[in-house]
Amino acid sequence: RKEMTAACTPRRRIINLTSVLSLQEEINEQGHEVLREMLHNHSFVGCVNPQWALAQHQTKLYLLNTTKLSEELFYQILIYDFANFGVLRLSEPAPLFDLAMLALDSPESGWTEEDGPKEGLAEYIVEFLKKKAEMLADYFSLEIDEEGNLIGLPLLIDNYVPPLEGLPIFILRLATEVNWDEEKECFESLSKECAMFYSIRKQYISEESTLSGQQSEVPGSIPNSWKWTVEHIVYKALRSHILPPKHFTEDGNILQLANLPDLYKVFERC
């Protein structure tokens, strides 16, 4: 597991931080080997919608929660590849102030007048994250320049770009939802926020969305749709870069829909 690298990086740093090793061990302890084997050997059937997909393993048909699986995938990559990410360069710098204002204007932020003026909160978020810029760049390849612009994001899987519609809320939550006081809790909560931002979430995906850094293989055609990215990038990574937690067998994120021999018997009677 320590050699797990989802995106190509030129050289690998050895990380011996106790906090990170502890988080890696927790993933191992909570892992479910049968689910790992199923995901490793599954045959992708198709997307139901951005949140759900169908896959077959041996004779069984499964309904998989793409949102939760991708979130767990990105969390584990962030923990196992800690401080070893490439950088996704933004085509132009994104001012943190503008991103924070967009987030505060969104109902998702939960902002009320009692929280104070949005401009003041946005300025605080910019200054707060600028103070964390060195650590964010060093460990997470999340790059913020001296003017308070976001200029780079971590490359977690080759050819995958997170849904940038979720970027404003991500920046807001970096400042408000991460435990910045304790090292282990900081790395864990920061990785979880980043994983949620990178995950496939239906509120940020339309039929026209593209999450891939590449064009489709047909010359002159439109960019790959999110469905292509889910199948050929995300579920491909799920084959080798995730140890599913045991609770996925109990919380409805992986559901067995049918045993195909039983279905064949039904059709034979028709």
Score class of each variant (00 low, 15 high):
residue 193 E to L: 02
residue 264 Y to L: 06
residue 248 F to W: 10
residue 100 A to Q: 00
residue 138 D to R: 02
residue 123 E to N: 02
residue 238 L to H: 02
residue 203 Q to W: 11
residue 15 I to W: 15
residue 147 E to P: 05
residue 129 L to D: 00
residue 35 L to Y: 03
residue 164 L to Y: 04
residue 146 E to I: 06
residue 177 E to Y: 15
residue 66 T to M: 15
residue 139 Y to C: 04
residue 212 S to C: 08
residue 162 P to N: 00
residue 227 K to T: 04
residue 40 H to K: 11
residue 194 C to F: 05
residue 131 K to R: 09
residue 21 L to H: 12
residue 190 L to H: 00
residue 159 N to A: 06
residue 91 S to G: 06
residue 237 A to E: 10
residue 240 S to C: 14
residue 61 L to E: 01
residue 109 S to G: 01
residue 71 E to L: 06
residue 223 P to I: 05
residue 44 F to D: 01
residue 28 N to I: 12
residue 241 H to Y: 11
residue 247 H to I: 13
residue 241 H to K: 11
residue 93 P to Y: 05
residue 248 F to R: 11
residue 25 E to Y: 14
residue 244 P to E: 15
residue 204 Y to W: 07
residue 62 Y to A: 13
residue 130 K to H: 14
residue 86 G to E: 11
residue 238 L to Q: 07
residue 22 S to Q: 09
residue 155 L to W: 09
residue 84 N to P: 11
residue 167 L to A: 04
residue 178 V to E: 00
residue 253 N to R: 08
residue 157 I to K: 03
residue 115 D to L: 15
residue 154 P to A: 01
residue 38 M to H: 11
residue 112 T to S: 05
residue 107 P to C: 07
residue 19 S to W: 14
residue 44 F to E: 01
residue 156 L to R: 00
residue 246 K to V: 12
residue 143 E to I: 09
residue 181 D to E: 06
residue 60 K to C: 11
residue 31 G to A: 06
residue 83 A to T: 11
residue 101 M to K: 04
residue 105 D to P: 01
residue 193 E to K: 02
residue 169 I to Y: 13
residue 268 E to A: 09
residue 90 L to E: 00
residue 16 N to M: 14
residue 120 G to S: 04
residue 268 E to P: 12
residue 178 V to S: 01
residue 131 K to C: 13
residue 51 Q to F: 05
residue 43 S to C: 09
residue 84 N to D: 11
residue 91 S to N: 09
residue 125 I to D: 01
residue 191 S to F: 01
residue 31 G to F: 13
residue 15 I to C: 13
residue 224 N to A: 09
residue 120 G to H: 14
residue 3 E to F: 14
residue 135 M to L: 04
residue 183 E to W: 10
residue 269 R to E: 07
residue 8 C to I: 12
residue 189 S to Q: 02
residue 55 A to M: 11
residue 99 L to D: 00
residue 117 P to D: 07
residue 244 P to G: 14
residue 189 S to P: 01
residue 167 L to N: 00
residue 255 L to S: 03
residue 39 L to K: 05
residue 23 L to I: 11
residue 236 K to F: 15
residue 72 E to I: 07
residue 231 E to H: 13
residue 255 L to N: 04
residue 60 K to D: 13
residue 116 G to T: 14
residue 242 I to M: 09
residue 196 M to D: 03
residue 54 L to R: 00
residue 115 D to Q: 01
residue 158 D to G: 07
residue 24 Q to I: 14
residue 159 N to W: 13
residue 31 G to R: 09
residue 48 V to F: 11
residue 132 K to L: 01
residue 243 L to F: 10
residue 118 K to Q: 14
residue 82 F to L: 01
residue 249 T to P: 10
residue 174 L to T: 01
residue 196 M to C: 02
residue 259 N to W: 08
residue 159 N to G: 10
residue 170 F to M: 06
residue 251 D to W: 15
residue 136 L to W: 01
residue 59 T to V: 11
residue 264 Y to N: 03
residue 174 L to Q: 00
residue 67 T to G: 08
residue 16 N to A: 14
residue 168 P to G: 03
residue 192 K to E: 06
residue 168 P to A: 10
residue 58 Q to K: 13
residue 30 Q to I: 08
residue 245 P to S: 13
residue 158 D to V: 06
residue 232 H to M: 10
residue 172 L to V: 02
residue 191 S to C: 03
residue 1 R to K: 05
residue 164 L to M: 05
residue 254 I to K: 03
residue 210 T to E: 05
residue 193 E to Y: 02
residue 193 E to Q: 12
residue 204 Y to V: 07
residue 173 R to L: 00
residue 109 S to E: 10
residue 226 W to Q: 03
residue 104 L to Y: 01
residue 41 N to Q: 06
residue 135 M to Q: 02
residue 79 I to F: 04
residue 151 I to Y: 06
residue 242 I to D: 15
residue 3 E to V: 11
residue 172 L to N: 01
residue 9 T to L: 05
residue 219 P to D: 08
residue 55 A to Y: 14
residue 229 T to R: 05
residue 201 R to Y: 12
residue 117 P to W: 15
residue 244 P to S: 14
residue 96 L to H: 00
residue 49 N to C: 07
residue 19 S to E: 06
residue 169 I to S: 14
residue 35 L to Q: 10
residue 39 L to I: 11
residue 243 L to W: 14
residue 3 E to L: 12
residue 147 E to N: 06
residue 5 T to L: 12
residue 150 L to S: 01
residue 156 L to H: 00
residue 175 A to V: 15
residue 66 T to Q: 01
residue 32 H to L: 12
residue 91 S to V: 12
residue 144 I to H: 01
residue 99 L to Q: 03
residue 233 I to K: 05
residue 240 S to Q: 10
residue 160 Y to K: 00
residue 35 L to I: 09
residue 151 I to E: 08
residue 235 Y to F: 08
residue 5 T to F: 14
residue 166 G to R: 05
residue 261 P to I: 13
residue 35 L to K: 11
residue 135 M to Y: 06
residue 251 D to S: 04
residue 27 I to S: 13
residue 27 I to W: 15
residue 40 H to A: 06
residue 233 I to D: 14
residue 124 Y to D: 01
residue 68 K to G: 09
residue 223 P to G: 03
residue 181 D to T: 05
residue 243 L to G: 14
residue 124 Y to M: 03
residue 30 Q to V: 10
residue 8 C to S: 12
residue 159 N to S: 08
residue 25 E to L: 14
residue 54 L to Y: 09
residue 229 T to E: 09
residue 63 L to D: 01
residue 23 L to S: 09
residue 165 E to P: 03
residue 177 E to C: 14
residue 235 Y to C: 11
residue 203 Q to E: 12
residue 197 F to V: 07
residue 6 A to P: 12
residue 63 L to I: 05
residue 185 E to L: 06
residue 196 M to E: 05
residue 217 E to K: 06
residue 75 Y to E: 12
residue 152 G to K: 04
residue 86 G to S: 04
residue 266 V to Q: 15
residue 243 L to C: 12
residue 52 W to C: 05
residue 144 I to S: 01
residue 179 N to D: 05
residue 77 I to N: 13
residue 114 E to V: 10
residue 1 R to C: 13
residue 127 E to T: 03
residue 54 L to I: 03
residue 98 D to C: 12
residue 217 E to H: 09
residue 196 M to N: 05
residue 20 V to F: 15
residue 239 R to M: 12
residue 163 P to L: 05
residue 96 L to T: 03
residue 109 S to W: 13
residue 129 L to N: 01
residue 237 A to R: 11
residue 47 C to R: 01
residue 164 L to K: 05
residue 222 I to L: 10
residue 125 I to Q: 01
residue 72 E to W: 12
residue 159 N to V: 12
residue 158 D to K: 08
residue 80 Y to I: 02
residue 83 A to N: 03
residue 246 K to A: 10
residue 1 R to I: 09
residue 33 E to I: 13
residue 228 W to H: 05
residue 244 P to V: 08
residue 269 R to N: 14
residue 47 C to D: 02
residue 153 L to I: 05
residue 53 A to I: 09
residue 112 T to E: 14
residue 105 D to Y: 15
residue 182 E to D: 05
residue 119 E to V: 09
residue 35 L to W: 09
residue 155 L to S: 07
residue 268 E to F: 14
residue 103 A to W: 15
residue 49 N to E: 05
residue 235 Y to T: 05
residue 184 K to P: 03
residue 114 E to F: 15
residue 101 M to F: 12
residue 15 I to H: 06
residue 40 H to V: 11
residue 68 K to Y: 10
residue 52 W to S: 09
residue 216 S to C: 07
residue 117 P to M: 15
residue 48 V to G: 13
residue 146 E to W: 14
residue 247 H to S: 05
residue 143 E to A: 07
residue 63 L to R: 06
residue 204 Y to C: 08
residue 65 N to M: 01
residue 47 C to L: 05
residue 37 E to V: 11
residue 244 P to H: 07
residue 28 N to T: 13
residue 149 N to C: 09
residue 115 D to F: 15
residue 76 Q to E: 13
residue 22 S to L: 09
residue 234 V to D: 00
residue 197 F to M: 10
residue 103 A to N: 00
residue 48 V to T: 10
residue 27 I to F: 13
residue 235 Y to S: 11
residue 13 R to H: 13
residue 184 K to H: 05
residue 1 R to S: 14
residue 132 K to M: 02
residue 171 I to F: 14
residue 219 P to E: 05
residue 38 M to D: 04
residue 177 E to T: 03
residue 6 A to C: 14
residue 253 N to S: 07
residue 203 Q to H: 08
residue 96 L to I: 08
residue 210 T to F: 04
residue 121 L to F: 02
residue 72 E to L: 06
residue 33 E to C: 11
residue 37 E to Q: 11
residue 72 E to D: 13
residue 88 L to C: 09
residue 237 A to Y: 07
residue 139 Y to I: 04
residue 201 R to A: 13
residue 116 G to H: 12
residue 261 P to C: 10
residue 50 P to R: 04
residue 269 R to Q: 03
residue 100 A to N: 00
residue 146 E to P: 08
residue 242 I to R: 14
residue 169 I to W: 15
residue 236 K to W: 15
residue 113 E to S: 11
residue 110 G to H: 01
residue 267 F to T: 01
residue 68 K to T: 04
residue 220 G to E: 09
residue 160 Y to Q: 00
residue 174 L to V: 02
residue 65 N to I: 00
residue 93 P to C: 07
residue 103 A to I: 02
residue 57 H to Y: 09
residue 160 Y to A: 01
residue 101 M to N: 15
residue 145 D to A: 02
residue 92 E to Y: 10
residue 161 V to I: 02
residue 66 T to Y: 02
residue 99 L to H: 03
residue 2 K to G: 12
residue 166 G to T: 11
residue 127 E to H: 08
residue 181 D to Y: 09
residue 227 K to Q: 06
residue 245 P to F: 15
residue 178 V to W: 01
residue 177 E to V: 03
residue 136 L to R: 01
residue 84 N to H: 12
